[in-house]
């Protein structure tokens, strides 16, 4: 059952200053994204840095305004609502940040900051204690200040603060990529436990395929502000259809190097999002690109349980 549903979401940014008779140049960081999140599931969103996944995370929560598109939570419109409704929505959807240290006020104790959302919404403060215990922060630990905690502990605080409001949806923006690998596993497992215990739905944004593979039910791959492929986890990893997905999966470190596929990127760097290529955004780096790819951008088409945006997927390859 679809729960959070985004249709044709788009958000552009300006580059450079406006001048006399000169319109500011702008580019789309998120360009027409359609996706759904089902209740209790985890939707992974992967892509290289600069592909717009962080912008998408904030758009889904309504933290930044969208240029166009529709966003509904259980059928209810969430974009362009009044300030009061917007604040009420904060109780249902929360964001967990990559930079936990930056997301916390250096001058406040951890407990105060976990209590803060409850203060803001006029809720009883005992929810903070529950949230702190749920993430494994006990007793005196909660009375410390951010600079007295480790990176993993800080991320637990940020998660506890988001949980204090007892939201239904957590959008996690690279929640573990700033952490050591051993700590990453702890946090990912904590998130999975929390999901089970509280019936949360996650949007898990990351550039790290192995983490996304571990936690997600479904995975969407983003490239240049668009979703290029979207499939159930096992299908995606077992049989990636879009060339970009294949490149990503091949580039990820593998336990057994002999399974590497012989597909290589033509050009190493992603194109400048402010100056996207014509046609399919991926064609300059795509080893399989044909003439058609340079002229026309492919639609995101449904093929069985997955969606793919590539001219070549109807034809068998690989």
């Amino acid at each position: 059952m679809s729960y959070l549903e985004a249709t044709d979401l788009a958000r552009s940014y300006q580059v450079g200053r406006a001048g006399f008779l000169r319109k500011p140049r702008s580019f789309f960081a998120v360009d027409g994204v359609t996706l759904t999140l089902n209740k209790g599931e985890t939707l992974g969103i992967v892509g290289e840095s600069g592909c717009g996944k962080s912008t998408l995370a904030r758009l889904l929560l309504g933290l930044i305004p969208a240029d166009r598109g529709v966003l509904t939570l259980q059928g209810q419109q969430t974009l362009g609502v009044s300030e009061t409704e917007w604040r009420a929505l904060r109780r249902r959807m929360q964001l967990v940040y990559q930079d936990a240290a930056g997301a916390l006020d250096p001058r406040m104790s951890v407990r105060t900051q976990v209590e803060e959302p409850l203060h803001i919404h006029g809720l009883p403060l005992d929810g903070a204690e529950r949230a702190l215990q749920a993430v494994g922060l006990f007793g005196a630990m909660a009375d410390r200040y951010p600079h007295e905690l480790s990176g993993g502990q800080l991320q637990r605080v940020v998660i506890a603060r988001a949980l204090a409001l007892e939201p239904e949806i957590l959008v996690l923006d690279e929640p573990v990529s700033a952490l050591d690998v051993s700590i990453q596993a702890q946090i990912v497992n904590l998130l999975m436990d929390l999901q089970r215990d509280f019936g949360l739905s996650y949007v898990f944004v990351s550039h790290d395929l192995s983490v996304v593979r571990h936690i997600s039910n479904r995975v969407a791959v983003m490239y240049l502000g668009r979703i290029v492929e979207d499939a159930p986890r096992d299908q995606l990893f077992a049989d990636p259809k879009h060339p970009y997905t294949r490149v990503l999966i091949d580039a990820a470190p593998k336990p057994d190097p002999s399974t590497r596929r012989a597909i290589r990127l033509e050009v190493g760097d992603p194109p400048n999002p402010a100056d996207p290529p014509a046609g399919c955004g991926f064609h300059p780096r795509c080893p399989l690109a044909v003439d058609h790819c340079r002229k026309e951008a492919p639609e995101l088409r449904r093929v069985a349980e997955r969606r793919v945006a590539c001219h070549l997927v109807s034809e068998p390859f690989g």
Binding site: L63, R90, Y97, A103, L104, D105, R107, H121, L165
Partner: peptide
Amino acid sequence: EQGYALAVRGLGARPSWIYLRHILPN
């Protein structure tokens, strides 16, 4: 533009709350 100010805004705080409780002390 600091992370904590944006984060507190994301909790649903009014601007005045952020200004008085977070930005002014900082």
